[in-house]
Design a protein around this nucleic acid. Structure first.
Lengths: 272, 272
DNA sequence: AAAACTAGGTGCGACTAGCGCAACAGTAGT
DNA sequence: ACTACTGTTGCGCTAGTCGCACCTAGTTTT
């Protein structure tokens, strides 16, 4: 099948699958870890293999085991490594801005980055409302997230068209995706006004606003976004949008962007 | 030699060593990653081996490569895995600490997080006393809870002022809220001593102590708090406060916080 | 109580993944 | 051009590890 050149991927792939299972789905309250057999069955692998792999991972601190329930969960080492990621650094800088937005408007605020054609949420600051879905660490299709428009704002038209052509969405979500030309117009709006507004966000009854965050080279490396209850008027949406745009601009400056000039380099590279 | 039981640790160990080097940099600001040869030499391994391993790790998203400098850094996947598990892990790991505090002082112990401008209690461990009000899942205004001070301890003064200005309290509870300047002084105390003390808690006849819990990114994600019967002397309040602070610190480390800003590994460290 | 069931761990042979060498390919400095 | 790097790759041989089967230990059933 996967006709690979000789890269040692077999063991690693297995370990990653295990870690992915242990991370859970983010939403499910699968709180207190998973047992060997369950994981093995879920992955369609031998119990023995999973058992041994988990022990090895435990030795390295990537997972830890509850001594009484014998269930595994992700370990301190993984978190320590994650903390040294550039994403972690970004989150630390961005945190105050997100908090400011969340408290100012009492709506959920997010920090997202682009990964392939998916939008990965790095951080979410919840509002005070009761129902709060955790999106941190979860990737969603680019077209579904409000942050998407901001993250690709610098792409040239051709690449956008390609993206829209290629992407397939879960059925029934087409309503969230407007036509190609509308998208291009939206991106122009982002570039000029500094923020994007989308009528439909991840959940129904939510609209979204977002704004691009640029690094010191002027490349878009992240986006701040907020999902706003639809009850709000369009005017308020734009009020929030302006605030989000301003926050993103401030954050960009914190990341080393020189404020005034437009040192925007050719967006051939989007990889963070 | 090392008499190993048959666990698949060879490849994993190598991968972990690589990740550790990439995270590494105990001291220097080596910002933009490391090259293959440098890593290989550092680990005393074959270049080819490191090259292939890194490519495999990159496929899994554990590391990222700067396309122009060809240097590797830790990847998004690590962050995503950690981020998704945070909340589940928080409750799981915090439980023993809360129980320890509750039994040590025979007072109720709580784990709280910030949601919008409200403090949400995720878990409560009752003391042995008869009357125990259940706060789990209940949100209270930030200003009313002892945990509030800890949860916003990292906010800058401006945002605190904004918060105090915006927040409106149920009437008759102003006694719990001291002046703005007093609040700022309190937060300074939290930052320096590691715990907060409030004279009035949710219920009358209760005082509160709390301490911030930081996740692997160093951000305050939760707070441990205890409500203490007012009968106790101020001295005891601070005794408990110190214990709560220490528990919060331990919990933070369990969550992957790298203690202090201290480089734990020097470049000459010998875990090779 | 024994039996039945489950959940995790282990011994060992067979087999293949991937290590190490060495040659190769880019890039930069002289 | 040559030299000195960097990172990649082809390939034979070896050791790491996969999978089966068999255990042990805990829990429920009869």
């Amino acid at each position: 099948m996967t006709d690979k050149p000789t890269v040692p991927s077999a063991g690693l792939r297995r370990d990653m699958e295990i870690l992915e299972v242990l991370a859970g789905h983010g939403d499910g309250r699968d709180a207190d870890g998973f047992g060997v057999s369950w994981i093995a069955q879920r992955l369609g692998r031998e119990k023995s293999q999973v058992s041994r792999a988990l022990r090895a991972l435990e030795l390295e601190g990537m997972v830890e085991r509850d001594p009484i329930t014998r269930r595994y969960r992700l370990g301190w080492r993984l978190f320590a490594l994650a903390a040294r990621t550039q994403h972690a650094r970004l989150v630390q800088v961005a945190a105050p801005y997100l908090r400011g937005l969340a408290t100012a408007f009492d709506e959920d605020a997010y920090l997202c980055v682009l990964r392939g054609n998916l939008v990965l949420t790095l951080m979410s600051v919840p509002s005070s409302r009761v129902y709060h879905r955790v999106w941190e660490g979860v990737s969603v299709p680019l077209l579904m997230a409000a942050a998407g428009r901001s993250l690709v704002a610098d792409w040239d038209d051709q690449r956008i068209r390609e993206l829209l052509r290629v992407t397939t969405l879960p059925s029934g979500l087409d309503s969230a995706v407007s036509g190609t030309e509308e998208w291009l117009a939206d991106l122009a709006h982002v570039r000029s006004c500094g923020y994007a507004v989308t009528e439909v966000e991840l959940e129904d009854s939510k609209a979204g606003v977002s704004a691009p965050v640029r690094d010191h080279r002027g490349l878009i490396t992240a986006a701040i976004s907020m999902s706003v209850t639809r009850a709000h008027t369009a005017a308020r949406l734009h009020e929030i949008g302006a605030a989000v745009g301003e926050a993103a601009r401030q954050l960009s400056i914190s990341l080393g962007l020189v404020p005034d000039g437009r040192p925007i380099m050719s967006p051939t590279e989007g990889s963070l």
